[in-house]
Nucleic acid binder design. Structure first.
Length: 275
DNA sequence: TTGGGTGTTGAGTA
DNA sequence: ATACTCAACACCCA
């Protein structure tokens, strides 16, 4: 489900509910979600007594900053966080519950159970899994044209695969890659190494622009995404190609084609995006 | 009823 | 190095 704009929206809405709250209990109903420390019991024990001071984000990862540790959380396809009074019945698919000293609960809900949580001591979070190989955030100053261009030059893959590669740039997923490629006028099957520097610059600009607009609109809701206040995103109204198969292109009127690239559903305007 | 598809990503294989 | 398949899991839809 969530790509950078959805995770960022979750970060912003969730902060309002949990900053300054102290954890007094953690219950884990689906232990496979907990990746570090290895023992889920240690995860719970370690969190106990710690206060949430801030929530950050790196790519599609949420980073809960605690007293001693950082909780790194990836929502994968369907993960959601919400805050409820302790006595409110839990919804189906609630797999991790953080109870605060004030009686409120932070609940992690994930229909498909794909999400992950790593709890790591502060200062060690960038070293090992899961952030070790993560590339720069598209909004980070280090995501320069020179950096992006150098990555494109030395790979033998098609551009869609490169944009989805989180070690190149962190945060784009299937929706925003298709949108970025369309806006930049680049065909997803184009070899990355054969793009001109001008095309690379355009891709970089359109990626940053599209993600920024999507953040401003609270993300994209296709089926199930809601932020931590239960609100849907609005960016689905702004999509040019994703989910628009057979619809006329908003730029030229040619029907949008849905095909497959690297096993992922891929949406293209055959007129605006030439190979 | 069944198989294919879904906003993610890691592992294993050739 | 890359591409492909599968796996994790639940649900929706034709």
């Amino acid at each position: 489900m969530p790509e950078l704009p959805e995770v960022e929206t979750i970060r912003q809405t969730l902060k309002r509910f949990v900053l300054g709250k102290t954890i007094r209990d953690v219950k884990i109903y689906w232990p496979n979600i907990i990746k570090a420390p290895g023992e889920p019991e240690a995860f719970s024990r370690q969190l106990n007594g710690q206060t949430i001071h801030d929530i950050g984000r790196k790519g599609k990862y949420l980073m809960f900053e605690l007293d001693d540790d950082i909780l790194i959380s990836h929502l994968r396809m369907e993960g959601k966080y919400s805050v409820h009074p302790q006595d409110e019945p839990a919804k189906k698919h609630t797999h991790v519950v953080f109870t605060f000293t004030d009686g409120e609960e932070l609940r992690y809900n994930d229909v498909r159970k794909f999400g992950t949580m790593h709890l790591k001591p502060k200062g060690t979070e960038l070293a090992g899994e899961p952030l070790k190989k993560l590339g720069p955030d598209p909004f980070d100053p280090s995501f320069t044209l020179e950096y992006f261009w150098s990555k494109l030059k030395k790979t033998d893959r098609v551009i869609k695969a490169v944009l989805l590669d989180q070690t190149v740039v962190a945060g784009l997923g299937n929706i925003y890659v298709d949108e970025t490629l369309f806006k930049a006028g680049v065909h997803p099957l184009k070899q990355a190494s054969r793009l001109t520097k001008k095309e690379a610059a355009r891709l970089r600009e359109k990626a940053i622009e599209t993600l920024g607009e999507a953040v401003a609109m609270g993300g994209t809701t296709i089926r199930s995404y809601v932020n931590s206040q239960g609100e849907m995103g609005m960016f689905q109204q702004e999509l040019f190609v994703y989910g628009q198969g057979n619809e006329p292109c908003k730029t030229c009127g040619t029907p949008i084609i849905k095909t497959k690239v690297g096993g992922r559903g891929t949406h293209i305007c055959p007129t605006c995006q030439k190979k």
